[in-house]
Amino acid sequence: MNIVKKLLLTAAGIAASAQALAHADHSHSIGGVFANLMHQLTEPDHLAMIITGVVVAVVGYKTLKNKKSENSKDF
């Protein structure tokens, strides 16, 4: 692995670990599962990531489905 890849992986690791400190007080975890779920669905940053994940999954599924149908037409 060359030095550029190592530096990029290190920078990505540092950036990802900083996000772990986003909720220093952890007050949303006191209320249990329902409070945690409501926190995930009402905070804009969490909701944006959920929506992004769903969109990526749908687009990926449609892309793979189209590629499979194109490959089956070749035979």
Rank of each mutant, 00 (worst) to 15 (best):
A24Y: 05
M38C: 09
T52P: 00
H23D: 12
G13K: 06
L8R: 10
E70D: 14
D74T: 15
V58R: 09
A57W: 06
H28K: 05
S69W: 03
S17I: 11
K65P: 00
G31T: 01
T52C: 08
D45F: 02
T63L: 15
K67R: 14
K73Q: 11
A35H: 07
T52N: 06
A18G: 09
V56K: 08
K5E: 06
M38I: 02
N36P: 00
V4I: 11
K62F: 12
L37W: 07
I30C: 05
V58Q: 09
T42S: 13
V4W: 03
K67M: 11
T10H: 05
V55K: 10
S17V: 10
K65G: 01
Y61G: 04
G13Q: 04
S17P: 00
G53A: 08
F75Y: 13
F34H: 03
I14K: 03
L21I: 01
V58A: 14
I51S: 03
V54Y: 04
G53D: 06
L21G: 09
L8W: 02
D74E: 14
Q40L: 14
V59H: 06
I51Y: 04
S69R: 15
H46P: 01
A16E: 02
E70C: 02
T10N: 06
G31A: 13
E43K: 07
D74N: 08
H28D: 08
I51F: 08
I51C: 05
T10Y: 11
N71V: 07
K6W: 07
S29Q: 13
S69L: 14
A12W: 03
L7S: 12
T52E: 05
S29F: 09
V58L: 15
S69M: 08
F34T: 06
L21K: 05
H26K: 07
L41M: 14
K5W: 01
I14A: 12
I30W: 05
A35V: 00
L37C: 05
A20Y: 02
K5C: 03
H23V: 03
I3P: 02
T63S: 13
M38K: 12
E43Y: 06
L21C: 05
G13R: 07
Q40N: 10
V56H: 04
K65R: 15
T63R: 14
A57Q: 06
L47Y: 13
Y61Q: 02
I51P: 01
Q19T: 12
